[in-house]
Amino acid sequence: MKAASSLLAVLLFGAVFAGIVGGYGERESVSALAEQYLAMVPRELGAPNVVTGILITYRGFDTLGEVAVLFMVAAGVGVLLGGKDTTTASEPGREPRRPSELVGNGAEITLPLIFLFGAYVIKNGHLSAGGGFQGGAVVASGTMLLMLALPATKLNHGFLGVTESLAGVVYVGIGILGLVFAAGFLDSHILPLGEFGTLISAGAIPVISALLGVKVGAELSVIIDRFRN
């Protein structure tokens, strides 16, 4: 009975989706809004990566809210799981198997590469595929490798918390500077645009990107560490 109703629901949705796919014709050109963005981001903001330009400047408020959501998640996971790590960690007889020596050594070789690549992705957010969120996720996956391969390491939650808060405060501060010196909140024109396509260019976008990367990396590391038991 329950299986039949579930099947019916899934089949109905499948029919709706089939109708959508069947009636969809591939677009030949972008919409007017997208054309505007594609033309304006390189000229006005000086950022070759259009997606990063949209995310950090035109939809800066949205990104700020997103970072706030991540902060709330870190706090919420901390509230839900934080109180019990002292009791389960010291439980005797359930010592997890140590990973083999090869994995530990390999992780020690790979970790600097991963963190370096994370920094590269963050700093190249306005030039190439990447940006604050993506680079922060790469840094956090480096933290995850650290926990998988070297389980004895402890994360310094206080330091990460201070770093994250500082990055958030500076981010909002840059937004307010944009309000004072340029056209509006989170406007990236407070710094000179520089030469198109170089590392130091595109106004405040690299600065905001780096702050986002630090903040997201710290938050995701804290979240991943909370899930370790």
Binding site: R97, S100, L102, V103, G106, I109, T110, L113
Partner: peptide, 21 residues
């Protein structure tokens, strides 16, 4: 290429150890 050369044997080593365990 360096990354693949470093990580791919490592992950399959961990995997085969788990399979043996």
């Amino acid at each position: 290429a360096y990354f693949v050369l470093m990580t791919n044997p490592l992950s399959s080593h961990a995997l085969s150890r788990a399979a043996h365990a």
